[in-house]
Design a protein around this nucleic acid. Sequence first.
DNA 1: TTCGTCATGTAATGGGTTACATGATTAC
DNA 2: GTAATCATGTAACCCATTACATGACGAA
Lengths: 213, 213
Amino acid sequence: MLELAILGLLKEQPMHGYELRKQLSQKLGFFWTVSFGSLYPTLKRLEQRGVVKMHAYGDKPSRKRQVYAITERGEREFLELLAESAVTRWEEDKFPLRLAFFRYLKPEMRIRLLERRKVYLEDKLDFGRASLRRTLDRTNRADSYTVSLMRHGLDTTERDIAWLDELIATERRLLASADEQPAPSADATGGGGPALPDTPDDTPTPSEELQSQ
Amino acid sequence: MLELAILGLLKEQPMHGYELRKQLSQKLGFFWTVSFGSLYPTLKRLEQRGVVKMHAYGDKPSRKRQVYAITERGEREFLELLAESAVTRWEEDKFPLRLAFFRYLKPEMRIRLLERRKVYLEDKLDFGRASLRRTLDRTNRADSYTVSLMRHGLDTTERDIAWLDELIATERRLLASADEQPAPSADATGGGGPALPDTPDDTPTPSEELQSQ
DNA sequence: TTCGTCATGTAATGGGTTACATGATTAC
DNA sequence: GTAATCATGTAACCCATTACATGACGAA
C-alpha cells in the first residue's frame, strides 16, 4: 500500500521524505495518511531493493535532505503492483489507491480491474443480504441497530457498484472512440458531461503509456 | 476491536473459540472477520487479564473444548470499551462494531456516541471538500479518476451522516417517549415504521441495563 | 526567544494475517 | 475410506502506529 503510493508519487517527480508525506496527505489524504515512522523505514527498504535511489544534499549532518527518485526497476514494479500481482485481501481499502493511479494503466487493464472490483462488491452484497435475511429470520425481534447497520451497509455497497458501473461505461466509451480513430490526438473523448479526459497533470503521454518491458 | 467483539458475544452466552468465530462471522461477518491465529491468543490474553474465565471439557488431550465465559470484570471492561475510554483513531472501522452492541448502552450514551461520530464524519467531509477544491484549482485538467473518487467519497460520507441523523432522531424520540411515561414497560416506542424496538435476542432487560458499578 | 514547521530518524507496540501442525468426528 | 468440518494451537511475518529524540531555520 505505502510502497505503491510512494512509487506513484516519485514517478511524478523526485522528492525527499518530508515532502513525500505532504503530497501524500494532500493528494491521497482524504482516504489515507501515513506517519513518518512508517515512511522513512519504507523508503530505506525501497532503496535497498533498488526501486528508488537516493541522493543526499547538505554535507553537514544538519540541513540534510535526502531526495529519492524512482528507478527503472521501480517503474516496472510500480506497474506490477498497480495492475495486480501480489494481491492479497484484494481491495476494500486498497482499491481507491489503485484508482488514484489509474491513468498509468491501459484502458483494457483498467476495465479488468474495475470488473474484478465489481465482482468482489457483488459477492459482498450477496453475503450481506444473506446475513440480513438470516438475522431477520432468526428471531421476530432482531437487534434494530444491527439491522440498520446492515441495511446501510448494503445501501453503500449498492452505490459503490453503481459508481463502478459508471466508471466502466465511461472506460468502454473511451475504448470504443479510440478504436474508431486510432490517432492518439487530444479531445477525442467527445463533449459530454462526466467523461474522463484521462489527462494527468505533468506526466507522460495520455494515451499510450504502460508496459515498459 | 477483537476484544470488544469477543466480550460482546460472550456476554450473550459462554462459548468455545471455534464457536465464537462462527458467531463472529455470522453476526458481524458482513463488515469484519477474524482468523483463528488471532482469536485463540486473544482469548488467552483475556483470560490472564481476568475478564473471561475458561472451563475445559474433555479430559483427554483429544476431544478438548475450552468454553469461555465473561466475568464481572469483563462486563465492566466491555462497557468501558464500548462507551469510549481508550479511543484511538476514533472510528472509521470500529464504529460499526460499537453500533452492533449499542443495545447495552443507555440512550444518553448512545446519542453521545452517535454525535461524536457525526462530528468526525463532518470533519472528514470538510477535509474532503477542501481536497477536491484544491485538486480542481491546482490545474485545469485534474486527474479524472482522483476527482471521481473524491466525489464518490464525499457522497458516501454525506449519506453516512444522513444515516446517523436518522439514528440520532430515533434515539431522541425514544428518549422523549420514555420521559413522558417513566414506566419501563414494553412497546412504549410507538407504532411507527422505522422505530428501534431495542429488544435483543436473549439478553437482559431492554430498557435499564448498563453501568454495573 | 519562542513557536511553528522543516527534516530525519529509532524503538516499542499493536493488531492483526498466513501458513503450518495436529487430531477427532461426522457425512457421504 | 475419504472428505469436510470440528477444535486448538504456534511461528513467522506484515504493515502500520505512537512516542520519543534530535536539530536547523524562519517568523512573531
